[in-house]
Amino acid sequence: YWITCCPTCDVDINTWVPFYSTELNKPAMIYCSHGDGHWVHAQCMDLAERTLIHLSAGSNKYYCNEHVEIARALHTP
């Protein structure tokens, strides 16, 4: 949970406070499906809480801010 998930990541173990109602003692993470995949903080991706809950409940693929354009290009005929 205490990783630098992207170039603009500002989640710090020493200063972090809950942002989403689902967070208690660690930041919400979401899995990016690009390549071998990697974890990113939901807050760093500017996800709305409703979107985070929807993604967490389903089996939808998610692409982080850095990889979403690549994913779109691969799926565009």
Results as ranks from 00 to 15, higher is better:
I3P: 02
I70K: 07
D46H: 09
S59G: 13
A57Y: 08
Y31P: 05
H75D: 15
H38V: 01
V11N: 01
C32G: 00
V68N: 05
N60M: 09
C32N: 00
T22M: 15
K61V: 14
N25Q: 15
G37T: 00
G37M: 01
S21G: 08
T4N: 13
L52M: 09
V17E: 14
G37S: 01
Y31E: 11
V40C: 06
C44Q: 00
L52N: 04
I3M: 10
L47K: 02
S59E: 12
P27V: 01
N25F: 03
H67A: 04
K61A: 13
V17N: 01
W16R: 03
V68T: 04
I53C: 10
D12Q: 07
A28K: 08
V17Q: 14
T22F: 06
E69I: 02
W39D: 02
T51R: 13
C64Q: 01
I3E: 09
Y20N: 09
T51F: 08
Y62N: 02
L52E: 05
T22R: 05
G58T: 06
R72P: 12
E23V: 00
Q43W: 02
R72C: 07
I70N: 07
T4W: 04
W16Q: 00
Y1T: 09
T22P: 04
T76P: 14
P27R: 00
T4F: 09
K61S: 08
C9Q: 06
E69S: 14
V40N: 02
M45S: 05
S21M: 04
T15L: 15
S59T: 13
H67W: 02
N25W: 11
C32A: 00
Y62G: 02
H54S: 12
A57Q: 13
L52P: 03
S21V: 04
T8P: 07
C32Q: 00
H38Y: 02
N65A: 12
D12N: 12
V17F: 15
E66N: 03
V40Y: 01
G58V: 07
Y63V: 10
V68Y: 04
I13Y: 15
A28W: 08
T15G: 14
T8C: 15
R50M: 13
F19D: 15
A57M: 07
R72D: 13
I30V: 03
H67Y: 02
N60F: 05
D36V: 06
C44T: 02
E66G: 12
W2V: 00
C32T: 00
A71P: 11
A71Q: 14
A57C: 08
G37H: 01
S56H: 11
A57H: 14
C44K: 00
I3S: 08
S56L: 10
A57L: 07
N60D: 12
N65D: 05
L24H: 02
R50P: 15
T76R: 09
N65H: 12
D10Y: 03
S59H: 10
K61G: 14
A28F: 06
N14P: 03
S33G: 10
Y20G: 04
H34N: 09
N14R: 07
P77G: 07
A71G: 10
E66P: 05
I53Q: 15
D10K: 09
Y62I: 04
A71S: 11
H38R: 02
D36R: 05
L24E: 15
T51I: 07
H34R: 08
F19M: 11
P27T: 04
V40D: 02
D36W: 05
W39S: 06
H34T: 05
L47A: 09
W16F: 01
V11L: 06
Y1S: 09
